Simulated assay, not measured.
Amino acid sequence: MKIAVICANGKEGKLIVREAIARGADVTAVVRRENQSEATSVIKKDLFDLTAADLEGFDVVIDAFGAWTPEALPQHSTSLKHLCNLVSGTETRLLVVGGAGSLYVTPEHTVQVMDGADFPEVFKPLASNMGKALDELRTRTDVKWTYISPAGDFQADGARTGKYILGGEELTLNAKGESIISYADYAVAMVDEALNGSHIQQRISVVAE
């Protein structure tokens, strides 16, 4: 399987590259600067400069883009729209590293994690912009997309256990009542979805066992 990982130099991107290579995939890193991932095949381009030809022939494109500064937050929408346009109408699947703020906490799907009184104010702009990008993604019936939300406590340096609980649109807690997952176990879930393609045009979520 041929997989392209966009923003492969990021913390999550590097772990996804490592996991995919370990599972036997042919992985290409898409990076703006010198490649720091374990991929030996590289496309050195800014995400917004990518063309449809760049992504032609890949079975899966994994979007690990992240923006954190206030002025860059709208790029969650613009970058995802650009990638959708590049793979529109093709067999290439687009998998997105998503956020937890847009997960629902009511069965009616009327209240999201980011709406909670205890949700940190500092993260609301990020969660809101990522939620908007997901809403826009849901309208793309021309793209074989999957959006994967991590647990609420997304731990960069957590261990790889290789295990996780697969959830859907709602915030899922494990047996300990926690919403937690490591970047490494999230990468396991991402590569599982890349290899299996089980959730086309769906948002799924993952939490540690």
Rank of each mutant, 00 (worst) to 15 (best):
D49A: 09
A29R: 02
K44D: 01
D46V: 02
I21C: 06
D49Y: 03
A52C: 05
F48M: 15
D46H: 14
I43T: 07
R23Y: 04
S37C: 08
V31I: 14
F48R: 02
A29W: 04
D46P: 05
T51F: 02
A29S: 14
R32P: 11
N35A: 09
D49G: 00
A20N: 01
E34C: 02
F48P: 00
E34H: 11
L50D: 07
V42A: 05
D26S: 11
V31G: 11
A22F: 00
K44C: 09
A39G: 08
G24A: 11
E19T: 13
R33E: 13
V27I: 07
S41T: 13
E38V: 02
D46G: 14
V31E: 12
A39L: 05
S41L: 12
T51N: 00
S37W: 11
E34M: 08
S41G: 06
G24D: 11
K45V: 04
D46L: 10
S41Q: 15
E38I: 00
Q36G: 15
A39T: 06
R32F: 14
E34F: 02
E19W: 09
F48H: 12
I43K: 05
T51K: 03
Q36L: 15
D49N: 08
A52V: 01
S37P: 06
A25M: 13
Q36P: 04
A22C: 00
V30D: 05
L50S: 06
E34P: 01
R33Y: 12
A29I: 03
E38P: 00
G24M: 11
R33K: 15
R32H: 14
R33L: 09
E38C: 01
D46W: 09
G24P: 10
V30N: 05
A22S: 11
T28D: 07
R32A: 14
R32D: 09
A29E: 03
T51R: 04
A20T: 01
Q36F: 11
D26R: 03
E38K: 07
S37D: 05
I43F: 01
E38A: 13
